[in-house]
Design a binder for these strands. Structure first.
Length: 883
DNA sequence: GGCTTCACG
DNA sequence: ACGTACGTGAAGCCT
């Protein structure tokens, strides 16, 4: 090795360990744990960027150093060794490093410490600078003027690194690096199986080394020392002391056949590494490849062709019509509400981007595309987003690959062409952002035509190639029926709802907002007066300081960043100070003002309506979600908040009909658990919370108090959520023990429910996923976690998902049917909203009776359960009245 | 961009 | 000893 070069050495297991415990349990969409690998790489990249070294090597132990420790722990009955989630990441880490051509050193018979010590010392002697990266302070003994020990700490704000040259060790610990060995020899270290001298801890060891410098010197001067416990123990344990020192010493002259040149840093960002990062779903790290990205192609792009000639386009559409056995992949390129091009694919070689020109008009493309779907299977990615430009309908032969991919794995966040290619075609494609950045499409088309063509064609290509495979996977996992009869038709229903939107009275909304504003200003003034100073009430940080430091209110509970000021804490503090109630009210008002009054106003379009979006591929359970704005969380529980519903109004000549299911989740539970008592209760249309209260509290049905009923209601909710005594206790503000009693009584009352919930967990553990009545699946990798919290979470999810998911399946069926029926009967009334167990239909005044009947029939008839499904319809001239 | 809080089912 | 109810989305603060 040349002089004056920089070498970075990494203590593999130690950093992997740090990363594992420092980061949350991240997994890929397939459930493989990746947090340790990601954390390791983040630390490594940070150091490489800082230091720009010439050489890099990572040392791993060949057997895990805490082996004995593990055996001991096993004996005690608690497994404390390397958790499985970490263990499975070790080989992955080594593979990734190998792909980066980073030298990985594993020498049987040598611990990583000794390898690191030897290499560092050797490099130093040859006149180089060394950085030794480890989470383990034992390595501090190696610090010198040229060997820097770097200890990374994973904090909330990112990774911070503590650096130690010899002088830093002295400053911080008042001992030299060499004396660190003696210190440890005296103190011992149970995790490393170093016994040390009994009775000597950190303090005494520090004093002794401060005075005598080394263990050898201590024993030379032992007779000069004042008699006492410490001196006695030293005398009795001389063997142990010297053995401990030996054990604590890191070898710096091991016989290693290692050539430093092997550790020379090459190209870390090569294609193999790119594939690894894609596989591990390290989206942020992929940005490091940005420069190489464009050249990173798979060869398929050679077959992509741009078409700008009308006759040519005609020929291609004709050709798409020929191959009837296979699907046609189709995608639209759209900008500012107009089509700028259309891509098509019906074989690996035939991939075309047909650009809109003076002759190839939007209408032409639209017509050709519509015709295609009348005859042959057209496969697309993200159908709902294409519907504004196409006239596809339920009757056409269309396959949405993103919806299929969602059913097969609902816990991923996106289902773009690159995600589908990665998961189902084992193909790594650059994403839209990889190719085009954040540029406008037409701009990108001019500036980077090659990348643009790739982007334009990938969706059609992936839609074409993945369709049959996805369909087969759906079939094999028994979800094809759900896909074809529920999810595909639902796309059109949701699209209809988005187009229709909901009418909002802009003026009324303004009045409501002004009313809130008045209240907020008044409360603000009162709060500042009460406290004696003005501050930002919206800042939990500032509020916490005011409440718990300035006013010294009790029950301060800490969050990660400061005091918790959440509503449930403040509620308990109301009697302590009058300002607390004001703050609670202030919170309520500002929430209503910013999120609802002001927030909704910004979404009202020219037509006086809000056209929110409904998402079908977001939730893990199968529910729909709503954004821009979220119309599924409009206030209702509190009086002031629910008043905002008055501003949601129907068109002239129309009214609202709002129908909601009565306790659909508990009814689903009754059906799925087959618990006779619960089933009978519903058959007899009894008040279920009251019955539960009567049974749990051993009180005659007629004598149940409102408080008892309310507690029983909380228990019923808890059951659906995957009950835990802690959660129930929290909700009811009672002790965990009491909550546990309620739960036990509940299970005594409904014995089959207990058995059923247990079975849900057991089955999910066995299969790795939970299943709804209609076959919808949700993977639950947490069930196999060794972490108690994680596993418990998985168990609650296993109990909740089939219930919540089945209810979601049912209302999806109902909304498709209601929407279709209204359309079939050519009615003017239209479905405009879904809120999980509720449907809102903007109903023509002449159609009220008929629509009401349709809603009840379709909702109640959406599934045949062992208990009746009940839906209650209400009419109103605004959304509040209809509730 | 993460955290906290809070709106709904 | 640990420390959470299940599923979402939006706003505001703060680093």
């Amino acid at each position: 090795m040349d002089k004056n070069k920089k070498l970075v050495l990494i203590d593999g297991h130690s950093i992997l360990n740090r990363a594992f415990y420092g980061l949350p349990d991240l997994t890929t969409s397939k459930g493989e744990h990746t947090n340790a690998v990601l954390g390791f790489l983040n630390i490594m990249f940070k150091i490489l960027e800082e230091e720009k070294p010439d050489y890099l090597a990572v040392a791993f132990d060949t057997s895990h150093p805490t082996f004995r420790h593990e055996m001991f722990a096993e004996y005690k009955g608690t497994r404390k060794g390397m958790p499985d989630e970490l263990r499975e990441q070790v080989p992955v880490m080594k593979e990734v490093l190998k792909a980066m051509h980073v030298s990985v050193i594993e020498k049987p018979g040598f611990e990583a410490d000794d390898v690191l010590g030897t290499l560092a010392t050797k490099a130093e002697k040859e006149g180089n600078l060394v950085s030794l990266v480890s989470g383990d302070r034992d390595l501090l003994q190696l610090a010198s003027e040229k060997i820097k020990i770097r200890i990374p700490k994973t904090k909330r704000t990112g990774t911070e690194i503590e650096d130690y040259l010899a002088q830093d060790v002295l400053d911080r610990y008042q001992v030299t690096p060499k004396q660190f060995i003696d210190l440890k020899g005296l103190m011992g270290d149970p995790s490393d199986n170093i016994p040390g001298v009994p009775g000597i801890g950190e303090k005494t060891a520090g004093k002794l080394i401060g005075t005598y410098q080394s263990i050898e010197n201590i024993y030379e001067h032992l007779n000069e020392m004042a008699p006492g416990k410490v001196t006695n123990s030293l005398k009795e344990n001389q063997d142990k002391a010297f053995l401990s020192k030996e054990l604590a010493t890191i070898c710096t002259d091991c016989e290693l056949d290692f050539k430093m040149e092997d550790a020379k840093i090459g190209n870390l960002y090569n294609e193999e590494v790119y594939l690894w990062f894609k596989k591990l779903e390290f989206k942020n790290l992929l940005s490091k490849f940005q420069t190489e990205e464009v050249t990173l192609t798979t060869g398929i792009e050679e077959g992509f062709t741009t078409v700008e000639d009308l006759a040519e386009a005609d020929k291609i559409f004709g050709m798409m019509d020929e191959k009837v056995a296979h699907p046609v992949g189709l995608h639209l390129i759209v900008e500012e509400d107009s089509i700028i091009g259309l891509s098509l694919c019906n074989s690996e070689e035939n991939v075309y981007y047909i650009r809109c020109t003076d002759f190839i008009t939007q209408d032409y493309l639209r017509e050709k595309a519509n015709k295609l779907a009348k005859g042959y299977l057209v496969s697309v990615i993200g159908l709902k987003e294409l519907l504004p430009y196409l006239a596809f309908s339920e009757k056409d032969n269309v396959f949405d690959a993103s919806i299929a991919a969602y059913l097969l794995n609902p816990v991923t966040d996106t289902y773009h062409y690159d995600d589908i290619a990665r998961d189902y075609l084992a193909l790594t494609l650059p994403s839209r952002e990889d190719l085009l950045g954040k540029a406008y499409l037409s701009k990108a088309a001019q500036e980077n035509p090659t990348a643009f063509l790739s982007y334009a064609c990938y969706s059609a290509y992936v839609a074409y190639r993945s369709a049959e495979r996805l369909r087969d996977l759906l079939y094999r996992s028994e979800m094809l029926h759900l896909f074809e009869t529920v999810e595909m038709p639902l796309i059109y229903t949701l699209y209809d709802m988005e187009v229709r939107g909901i009418r909002v009275d802009k003026e009324d909304l303004k009045v409501y907002g002004d009313h809130l504003e008045t209240g907020i200003l008044s409360l603000e003034k009162q709060i500042y007066e009460q406290v004696g100073e003005s501050f930002n009430i919206n800042s939990p940080k500032q509020l916490g300081v005011i409440l718990f430091e300035k006013l010294r209110l009790p029950f301060a509970k800490k969050t990660k960043t400061g005091y918790s000021t959440s509503a449930d804490i403040l509620e308990k503090l109301q009697s302590e100070h009058p300002v607390v109630a004001m703050i609670l009210e202030y919170r309520q008002l500002t929430k209503l003002k910013s999120t609802y009054a002001d927030g909704l106003a910004g979404y009202i379009r020219e037509d006086g309506r809000i056209h929110g979006r409904f998402h079908q591929t977001i939730t893990a359970t199968g529910r729909i979600s709503s954004t821009d704005p979220n119309l599924q969380n409009i206030p209702i529980r509190m009086e002031l908040g629910r008043q905002i519903r008055r501003v949601f109004i129907p068109e002239e000549g129309y009214v609202f009909l709002d129908a909601d299911y009565s306790q659909i989740e508990l009814r689903v539970l009754a059906h799925m658990s087959e618990d006779e008592k619960l089933i009978n209760a519903y058959k007899e249309a009894k008040d279920i919370h009251r019955i539960t209260a009567s049974e749990v509290f051993h009180t005659p049905f007629e004598e149940v108090t409102p408080a008892q009923r309310s507690s029983a209601k909380a228990v019923n909710f808890g059951i659906v959520y995957g009950i835990s005594s802690f959660g129930l206790g929290q909700d009811l503000n009672i002790s965990r023990k009491e909550a546990q009693m309620y739960i036990e009584k509940y299970f005594e009352t409904y014995p089959k429910i207990k058995a059923y919930l247990d079975k849900l967990v057991a089955d999910a553990k066995e299969e790795g996923y939970s299943t709804t009545l209609f076959g919808r699946r949700r993977p639950i990798p947490e069930l196999s976690s060794s972490n108690f919290m994680q596993r418990s979470f998985g168990e609650r999810v296993a109990m909740n998902s089939p219930i919540q998911g089945t209810a979601a399946d049912i209302i999806k069926i109902a909304m498709i049917r209601v929407n279709q029926k209204l359309k079939e009967l050519k009615m003017r009334s239209r479905l405009i909203l879904q809120v999980h167990d509720e449907l809102l239909v903007e109903t023509h005044k002449e159609e009220v009776a008929e629509v009401s009947k349709i809603m009840v029939e379709e909702m109640q008839g959406a599934a045949e359960l062992m208990v009746p499904l009940e839906a209650e319809v209400k009419e109103g001239k605004n959304w509040l009245e209809a509730k």
